[in-house]
Write a protein that binds this DNA or RNA. Structure first.
Lengths: 222, 222
DNA sequence: TAGATTGTTAATCGATTAACAATC
DNA sequence: TAGATTGTTAATCGATTAACAATC
């Protein structure tokens, strides 16, 4: 079982805590805002206030990522932003296939954050004959049943699902079958993926419901 | 300080943990799916699998909410769904003002989850002359500078911000000034609100960035 | 009854915060 | 130097899970 040429056990860099990963895009966005305002350095306290956390957490996160500041002075804004982009993997370019070019799919295809140095459109798909063949955000919408031939040789890195709920699981299964390993699903339904696939599910109405919850007392008149 | 007629110290029902509140819309959505499939009862284990958590957590959440099942049998799907709606405050009706009727604002105004028994459009606003005056999702788009007169006497319960980043803080300040107490912001920028205001911020590109992070190794070729 | 599944407690795990010596 | 702020440790807090008696 154990041959001579087995790779040496990798000293795996300890995986980042999920909570830290979730904050990385927030740090990056805040640093962009600071750069626009002309800030050269920022303290953990200011950065913490911007994203609504404790300054200890900022220092801990950045330290865990291997980023350093200067005592008495803070962190260098531009450097830190580059390091975060690198750590997030945004220096690599990813292609995105969007399935379901209704209002939401169209909004996503035109969304500034969806078309950046890091992300580009690698395919738009729908099944509605009125939509297939039209051009959205500079790309022609293809029929989803042509998925295989369209993505052949240029597998999208990320599949975005913006279909009605009842189509979502089918679409996801097809995407997984052609080899997509990361999926972002906006459909309001429960979906399943095999363990090797990364799924993130966003339900826009959930945020509304959570706000409604924290609001109950006002309306209740208490 | 302590008069005879002071209200008796309220035996405040222990506040729900934020983590539990976040899961409530997920339970509700899964129960809807189960109802559509004709299920009458569901075990904590099945419900847990649907939303990707441990069955202990489901039982604990539901127990904390005061909802009960039947040993050996599970929880009643329809009853549980109604109880969750009640607990979330979805039996009250909320009006929503959407500011920024671009692609995203239009998508939100037409989003099924944004127009339900619980939520209705209480105003659409933009500043673009090409958009102001048009009808979107059945409502006429008004100029944001007319906010005060438009919402007079019918204060929206929730303000949704779908403007470009550089307008977001201004829009939020205006919404807060007219009295809006809950805000859902989709603009990709850091924003601040006074403590009495409930703010939730959603950046669609953050989810993409997090997927990119967990994907690094694939592209890196490792 | 036997099997399934709840409701709850105690144990564990992970995330956050306070505190402060180090040092720019 | 004096003041500011990092980097890190230990303490705390909150969330999750395992386990199991209760009971349908």
């Amino acid at each position: 079982m154990h041959g001579h040429y087995d790779a040496a056990p990798q000293p795996e860099p300890a995986a980042l805590a999920p909570a830290t990963v979730q904050r990385m895009p927030q740090y990056l966005r805040a640093l962009g805002d600071l750069e626009n305002q002309g800030a050269r350095t920022v303290s953990s306290e200011v950065l913490a206030d911007l994203i609504g956390v404790n300054s200890s957490m900022v220092r801990k996160d950045l330290s865990l990522l291997g980023f350093t500041g200067t005592r008495g002075r803070g962190y260098p804004v531009a450097t830190l932003a580059s390091q975060l982009e690198e750590a997030l993997g945004l220096t690599q370019s990813r292609s995105i296939a969007i399935v379901g070019i209704g209002h939401l799919g169209t909004a996503l295809a035109n969304h500034p954050g969806f078309i950046t140095r890091s992300f580009s459109i690698g395919g738009l798909f729908d099944v509605n004959p009125a939509v297939v063949g039209t051009t959205v955000a500079g790309s022609r919408v293809r029929h989803f049943e042509d998925l295989e031939s369209v993505v052949q040789g240029a597998l999208p890195d990320i599949g975005v699902v913006a279909t009605p709920p009842n189509a979502a699981q089918y679409v996801i299964d097809r995407l997984v079958t052609v080899g997509v390993r990361s999926i972002l699903c906006f459909a309001s339904t429960t979906v399943q993926v095999p363990p090797q696939v990364n799924l993130r599910s966003v339900d826009l109405s959930h945020e509304l419901q959570i706000l409604a919850f924290y609001n109950r007392s006002f309306k209740a008149g208490s």
